[in-house]
Design a binder for these strands. Structure first.
Lengths: 114, 114
DNA sequence: CTAAAACGATACGGACCCGAAACAAGGGCT
DNA sequence: AGCCCTTGTTTCGGGTCCGTATCGTTTTAG
């Protein structure tokens, strides 16, 4: 299932996709926030603050604040873990799924245009 | 030359690439800065502040500040246009070319691993 | 039952970036 | 020369995000 990309094509793809995202959303999502969003929606749950911090190699407050922002946008929800009250489970939302899908479509469109 | 990407694969690719970039550089390059860097290195010169502002749909000060940052990192240089002293030509550097190439390699590596 | 550890959220000081407006410098035209 | 337009930079007030350290809650170990 590996994708064969020659370096020049890969860079072009990334270039156009980045450009499209910057134009589309201004500054709505930073690189980190996008990484968190996609990780939550593409990797099987459950997702915790600690786990996200580990996979992104950042500190926990970064994740907390990013989740605050993503929560305000309606892209994720936080629920306390019923079996271990210390954990917080990050839940997906319809809005967030739509946004992730939108990003995927954008990349597909860019790929077609190259 | 079009790349055929199914949405799920495209999202996975973008997800892994974003994750790798976040892990690699922490917060060195924002989405806008990366868009500027790639644009300068992938589109034939000359590049001006005004032109970049138009292609990114942002204001000129944004470009000026981003070029300040990219300049401090050694990724671009600014030279006044000899024929029209109002323009500033953005020049490439060896360091910047290496960094762009590094990003390309990273995406290729991610594509192979999926 | 008490002490230590784990997890997430918050306080704080500092750094960065934003957009609008004002500013300097260059060029074109009469 | 004088005026006006273009180009890029800087200033200003405001907002966001960072990392470290600390706090509150919950769980686990002794």
């Amino acid at each position: 299932m590996a994708i064969e990309l020659r370096p020049a094509i890969a860079l072009d793809l990334w270039h156009e996709a980045t450009l499209a995202l910057v134009r589309l959303e201004g500054h709505d999502l930073s690189l980190r926030q996008m990484a968190i969003l996609l990780h939550v929606y593409l990797v099987p749950p459950p997702h915790t603050v600690r786990g996200l911090a580990a996979t992104l190699c950042v500190t926990k407050p970064v994740i907390t604040r990013a989740l605050d922002t993503l929560g305000e946008m309606g892209f994720v929800t936080r629920v306390r873990d019923p079996v271990d009250g210390r954990n917080v489970i990050i839940k997906r939302t319809v809005e967030g799924a739509l946004h992730a899908e939108r990003i995927g479509d954008l990349i597909v469109a860019v790929g077609k245009r190259i």
